[in-house]
Simulated scan of single mutants.
Amino acid sequence: MKGKKLMAMLMAGSMLLAGLTGCGGSTAKGGGAAASADDYPNGPVTVICPWGVGGGADVIARKISEVAKNYFDQPIIVENHTGASGTIGMMDAMDADADGYTMVVANGPLFSLTPKYIDVSYDLSDFTMLRGMRQVSLMILTNPQKSSIKTFDDLINYGKTHKITYATSSGPGGDQYVVSSAMFKSLGIEAEPVVMGSEAESINAVVSGQVDCGLGTPPAYYSHQEEGTIQAVATFYPEAVKTPYGEVKSIKDWGVDVEFAGMDCLAVRSDVPQEIVDKLNAMLDDVYADSKFTGFMDEMGYPLWDAKGDEVTKFIEDQMDSMDKYVEMLK
């Protein structure tokens, strides 16, 4: 329950910060300074978050900005530029000057999947990845109190005689929709997605019995699992995931060749000078070593993904290959 109270406080604080820093306004610059490492930073640095206030990526970015006050000469300000599946924020980051005064929170599907369905003016080569933030395991959730589906085997057997309804927070073109559709097709199961407006709505649809199963990420559903109204029966993560409620096996254990690991990372435009990239990475080194940050990540249940830039880029490239395969499966 302590984590839930902390999340509530963080969301309230994030909403206040959003009001102070703006929601989609122009990005802050370093006072018109040239993109030189000699006097960098000499003004505030903006982090564009392409998703809303209070989400995992947003609260982590805000915690980084808070802890960075001890290691960085200028304030780091988080702005939420939302819309169009995150691409508005990404394109705003592309439009910002390449002076190191604008970072952006990104994830894999913004490069591996979204451009297949939305016309965007960026690609992976336009960005330098700075550091991973977290990895996210996507879980298949059921409500054992509302249905007979208590295990992944139960779900498969149920699907042999019924059309399965499942809640997802992304529609066609979204990561949850694509990987879940590929999984059900691989299993030869007819399934109908019920697209919800948020992950919380998807989880509530499972809890209320509106759907047979749904998709969610730790720790968003933990309070419901504690109450017995949610059971994580399998994960799209390529290996088993340990949770406070036991180990959750990968669908690969059932021979399903579909996997997905979500992640968030920090990036800048690829034409930002290397000397400035090095200064930003040095700041992140200090933040990621600070117990205030690592303790926050532990408390919130977010696995810290301290991947360096090349590793993040390789992760996205591999995911691009996987998504090509899954999209082809659905044609």
Rank of each mutant, 00 (worst) to 15 (best):
N157H: 14
T235P: 09
S198P: 11
A220T: 15
S137Q: 11
K249A: 11
P218W: 01
K252E: 12
I230E: 00
F184Q: 04
I189E: 03
P172D: 11
T168S: 12
S181D: 04
E190Y: 10
S186E: 15
A205W: 01
A220G: 13
H162L: 02
S147A: 11
E239W: 12
S148I: 08
A205G: 01
K160D: 08
D153Q: 12
S147V: 08
I164L: 07
S198G: 10
M139F: 15
I164T: 02
K249N: 09
I230M: 03
Y221A: 15
G214R: 04
A234W: 09
G246I: 03
M196R: 13
E239K: 14
F152N: 03
Y166F: 15
K160R: 14
M183H: 01
K249F: 00
A220Y: 13
V136P: 13
S181L: 11
I251L: 12
D153E: 13
G159V: 04
C213W: 07
T235L: 08
S250Y: 10
N143M: 09
K185G: 08
S137H: 10
F236R: 07
S198D: 12
G228F: 13
I156M: 10
K163W: 01
V178K: 03
E201N: 13
F152V: 00
S198F: 14
S186F: 09
L141D: 05
T217F: 15
T165V: 05
Y166V: 13
K150G: 06
H224A: 12
S169F: 09
A191Q: 01
K160I: 06
S180A: 15
P144Y: 04
S137T: 06
A191S: 07
S148N: 15
G159L: 01
T161G: 05
G246F: 02
L155I: 05
Y222L: 14
V206A: 01
P244V: 02
A232W: 07
V211N: 03
T151Q: 03
D154N: 08
Q225C: 07
E247C: 00
T229A: 06
G228D: 02
F152S: 00
G228V: 04
I140R: 02
V206C: 01
L215P: 06
G216Y: 09
V179A: 06
D175K: 14
K252W: 05
G214H: 07
S148L: 11
E247V: 10
